[in-house]
Amino acid sequence: MIQLTNIRKKFGDNEVHKGINLEVHPNETVVIIGKSGGGKSVMLKMIIGLIKPDSGSIVVDDKEVTTMTYKQLQRLRFKFGFLFQGAALFDSMTVGENIELALRRHSDYKDGDIRERVQYALNLVNLENVESVMPSSLSGGMKKRVGLARAIALTPKYMLYDEPTTGLDVETADGINLLINELKKTLGVTSIVVTHDIHSAFVIGDRFAIFENGKFILTGTKEDIRNSPDDNVQKYIESEIQT
């Protein structure tokens, strides 16, 4: 379980989080919806301790993240797979090396096992024969898939997706959404997805949290969102109808 309580964060004069509360239960997918530049990526990074909140508490599996030592943070991060917005593949390494990197360093796998594991991860994201390709020659959708494969290589318990479908065409985006749903089934992961694409959100999410001006203005199911009288919530629904 992941639990954020009263999180506040300022960058200089820019107050991005003004008291955030969120609970993510085992095996559910919570989708955070909000404008870009609002602080959603920062929120995901806080959960694995890449950025520290100014105040508030983040609890993962009954352990407080904000006070963890470096060693404890390292251990925490094993539990997480993180898909970054632009996939963040290491561009000096091949696709295979990208996926292997953490396996080589953090597991006792032998060379053969590692190769098998890379294959397995690539299979899960429906890619083949790309191990020796450099990331720069991949399309946006393929980069995201490789980023996914890298994130799941160490069998995480939690997945954090930062705008997994942003910048992709509808078809490719649907492919990624399917994958996210499949990973949830096959790996049993608990996920937080950040997006401003309400259509994708409804395809993958169990619960939704609308992030506006540094706070969650609504947390609930699809029905709660559809029935909300709040204009700030409705504008997302309208954007769904348009697409």
């Binding site: 694995i48 890449l50 991060r77 997480f80 963040a88 290491f90 561009d91 990197l101 360093r105 160490l154």
Partner: peptide
């Protein structure tokens, strides 16, 4: 710097490096 702005450094940390 490019690794920083494309979140590759964050990715390294996320992979417990």
């Amino acid at each position: 710097g490019t690794m920083r702005v494309t979140e590759q450094i964050d990715a390294l940390e996320a992979l417990a490096f």
